[in-house]
Design a protein around this nucleic acid. Sequence first.
DNA 1: ATAATATACCTAGATAATCTAGGTATAAGG
DNA 2: CCTTATACCTAGATTATCTAGGTATATTAT
Lengths: 110, 110
Amino acid sequence: MARGDRSALPGGTAMLVLALLQEREMYGYEIIEELEKRSDQVFQMKEGTLYPVLHSLEKEKLVTARDQEAPSGRKRRYYRVTAAGLQALEAKKEEWQVYARAVTAILTNA
Amino acid sequence: MARGDRSALPGGTAMLVLALLQEREMYGYEIIEELEKRSDQVFQMKEGTLYPVLHSLEKEKLVTARDQEAPSGRKRRYYRVTAAGLQALEAKKEEWQVYARAVTAILTNA
DNA sequence: ATAATATACCTAGATAATCTAGGTATAAGG
DNA sequence: CCTTATACCTAGATTATCTAGGTATATTAT
């Protein structure tokens, strides 16, 4: 549909991830669970989707990562959103709203 | 994200097309112009996206097509939504709303 | 004890939607 | 006459996501 950055649009995994991290740092597995819970089971993101997204967000410096052991003993990789990440989030949210408004305009047409 | 029919979701070209055809029959080029106009320039669907979608909608019997010459003399192919198409539209709209609500829930989180 | 499930990370290759970039042909406008 | 707009089309590239694996440790059930 030629609207530039498709990654900010539905299917916009990055936007959802950044939105969660805005609140607090989280590790991958936790992100999947939170998305599922907060979306009332609508989002069931696959690991094969999330982990590559996290890696590319890290490469773009929109998040930083650190390893930490859980009390249980399992290793977790926590992600924290950067200032650039917050900026990117705002841009993606705006794009989402433009897109959602446009869809609504078509669906509630004459 | 594993929600079954990805085609009903943003990027859901088929839903937008069916929504327009609900109103009246249209030809391909017209659909592109209408989407652009009604979305306030947000949707700028490419011909390479639309025509294949129209062909697959026709194969699925969600639309029917007929050729008609314009007063200008150019040949146009008009598409009309079928009863099955209207049903599909309702399903896609419902899916869209579930999806949009879920996104909103994440974006307006705690 | 041990088997199964849940947690936690990862990647390679397949699938599917959309775009790019062409092609054809006619009509209208400069 | 030449360019732009209209109007249709398709093949191949791109990209997001999924499938389907793999590894390893912790918890729960049998």
